[in-house]
Amino acid sequence: MGVQENIEQIKTDGLAALKQAASPEALEEVRLGFLGKKGTLTKILRSMKEVSPEERPLIGKLVNAAQKELESALAAQKEILEAAALEERIAEGTIDVTLPARPYAQGHAHVITQIVQEIENLFIGLGYTIVDGPYVETEYFNFTSLNTPADHPSRSPRDTFYVKTSRENNQVSDLLLRTQTSPVQMRTMQAQKPPIYVLCPGKVFRPDTADASHLPQFTQIEGLVVDKGITFADLKGTLDYFAKAIFGEERKTRYRPHFFPFTEPSCELDVSCAACGGSGCKFCKGEGWIEVLGCGIVDEQVLINAGIDPEEYSGFAFGMGAERVACLRYGLGDIRELVQNDMRFLSQF
């Protein structure tokens, strides 16, 4: 066999051997056998001096070509083997993706906090700041300054918790648990010059025995605006915006004249019932409307009590119960659940 045939044979054998190599180790063995220092192709290169000078260029070319071909086949085979190995590793790593997630303790904000913050955010967007005040209030701030007549039933011990003081004989007292967050409005008006745009969320207290729709401690969210040129139309625009944002764009609003000592004119805001869309159903007791809050133009006397000139400034105020919003939003039937703190209840929000 001549050298040329020999090279051809080595190449053919080498390519076949490479194809056979099924592991990186086998592949390396083949490489060494053909292309290594002692490999058959290397041997031919080494024995080039035995080749006649006129044949040398041709043989050299052939050896180089064979070497290149073997090297690229080696690389190709290496790639195939690596791909197979990766595939195998991936196959071994298969898991049941339907197994449960790792337990991860996630806490929950109380639904009332969430509602309060949602409403706060809404009014912050309208330029309001958030204020609060003492829970134990004076009769002046809770009632008198807000235009509540001296003999108004809301002042009676049946409607207001009174707090013992050192000065009184502990039968009557001018200190009480606030029954509304309105005293915060009065404190704000007395402390700050208009323009006033504030939201006063907070706990309030009334001596109601807890039942499905009453709690002795609940959460009120009141708002107050005092500025130049504030109108009833502004009150409507603000509360329409609120009602749609909280209850849904498609809800309609209705303003019903009402009476509150703090405001004049006063009204209540209804939104159209979500369950029936306003045609009347069990949920809205056939009325098509759900009462949401009370509101009105701040009574002139209240502004005067706060040291604000009603000829220069006017304002509006509104107040709602966060628990009521929770009932309307989530269909909560018994508000006692809000203070039971059952983990199963809390974790739904």
């Binding site: 500025d227 502004d234 409507k236």
Partner: peptide, 20 residues
């Protein structure tokens, strides 16, 4: 008619909402 009043939003110049 309260419901006949066209709703507006207060002009509220120089007010900015925020939390402390």
């Amino acid at each position: 008619g309260m419901n006949q009043v066209t709703a507006t939003i207060p002009k509220g110049t120089n007010v900015a909402g925020k939390r402390t």
